[in-house]
Simulated assay, not measured.
Amino acid sequence: MRAPKPISVTVFVTSPDTRSERRFDLHTSVGQLKNKLELITGIPVQNQRIELLNSEQETDPLVVLDDESKLLGFYGVRDFQVLRVVDTNPSISFTGQLTDLSQVEKFELSEDDYAQRRDTVLAYKQRNKIGRFAEKEAEIEKPLPKIDIPIGARCEVETSETDLHKRGTVRFVGPTKFGNGEGIWVGIEYDEPMGKNDGSVQGVRYFECKPNFGVFIRPDRLKVGDYPVEEIDFDDEEM
């Protein structure tokens, strides 16, 4: 037993301004179809050219439904084919003008005029201090800790090396431009050339001493007290 032939089909209807999915009875004549399509596409009946395509990607139609007395079934319309409605006289039906943005006059506003308006997003952000207009919290300068290390005091720097005493004289106490500018540094002039500089770092001078006699350390790494200069004894074979 053969399956009954469908009496209606679902197709896509496209025009310059519309696209929709519709269901039509195959016993509908082309003339009747045009009346329905005028309500869908806005194209007058007398200006309609109905083309049948397998898909929207195709450009060449399978057939043109040009006989208003013929039924849709006569043209072999199947489910999910495309009925492309072409406007043969768009000048009177305004076809395509709804999507043609080239005919729309653009509204342009200069940056100065935009900034002066009070009904814009920019004005809203300014009033409510949002984004880049938010008030920045005042930077609170952290007070520097009080360091009781007098300039000229004798000191000894802690070291992990056994029997090595790094002794010297305090020449500087205070903040510096190096070390992210944070905290207090102590500048020391060593008794021996065990340092890293001459009292200057990165082109900024903090005190004067010979090259390799100067060093900067944190206060917690030294002890201040009566540290005499240690004499270095050389062997007879050393000069």
Rank of each mutant, 00 (worst) to 15 (best):
M1K: 12
R2C: 04
R2Y: 10
P4W: 12
P6W: 04
I7N: 12
I7T: 15
S8K: 12
S8A: 11
T10L: 04
T14C: 00
S15W: 03
T18A: 00
T18C: 03
S20T: 15
D25K: 15
L26F: 07
T28W: 09
G31F: 09
G31H: 08
K34C: 09
K36N: 06
L37M: 00
E38W: 05
I40M: 03
I40D: 07
T41F: 02
T41S: 01
G42E: 05
G42Y: 01
V45R: 14
Q46M: 12
Q46G: 08
Q46Y: 12
N47V: 03
L52M: 06
S55V: 10
S55F: 07
Q57L: 14
E58D: 11
D60V: 14
L62R: 15
L65N: 11
D67W: 00
K70G: 04
L72C: 07
G76M: 06
V77R: 13
V77L: 14
V77S: 10
R78C: 10
V82F: 02
V86N: 08
T88I: 08
T88G: 02
P90N: 04
F94T: 05
G96I: 05
G96N: 06
L98K: 13
L98D: 10
D100V: 08
S102V: 05
F107M: 12
L109Q: 14
L109T: 14
S110E: 09
E111Q: 11
D113R: 06
A115S: 13
Q116I: 07
R117W: 04
R117Q: 13
T120D: 07
V121E: 08
L122P: 00
A123K: 03
K129W: 00
G131S: 02
R132H: 02
F133T: 00
A134Y: 01
E135H: 01
E137H: 07
P143G: 01
P143A: 07
L144Y: 07
P145V: 01
P145G: 03
I149C: 08
S160G: 10
S160C: 08
K166Y: 12
R167T: 11
R167P: 03
R167H: 07
G168H: 01
T176L: 06
T176V: 12
K177W: 06
G179L: 03
N180I: 07
E182I: 14
E182R: 14
G183F: 08
I184S: 12
V186P: 02
I188W: 05
I188L: 10
E189M: 13
M194Q: 13
M194C: 10
G195I: 07
G195E: 01
K196Q: 13
K196H: 10
D198R: 11
G199W: 06
S200N: 05
V201Y: 03
V204I: 15
E208C: 03
E208Q: 10
N212C: 04
N212T: 07
F216S: 02
I217S: 08
R218S: 15
P219A: 05
D220V: 06
R221Q: 15
V224D: 04
V224M: 02
G225P: 01
Y227A: 07
Y227H: 06
P228K: 13
P228F: 05
V229Q: 15
E231A: 13
I232L: 10
I232Y: 04
D236Y: 09
E237L: 09
E238S: 09
E238I: 08
M239E: 15
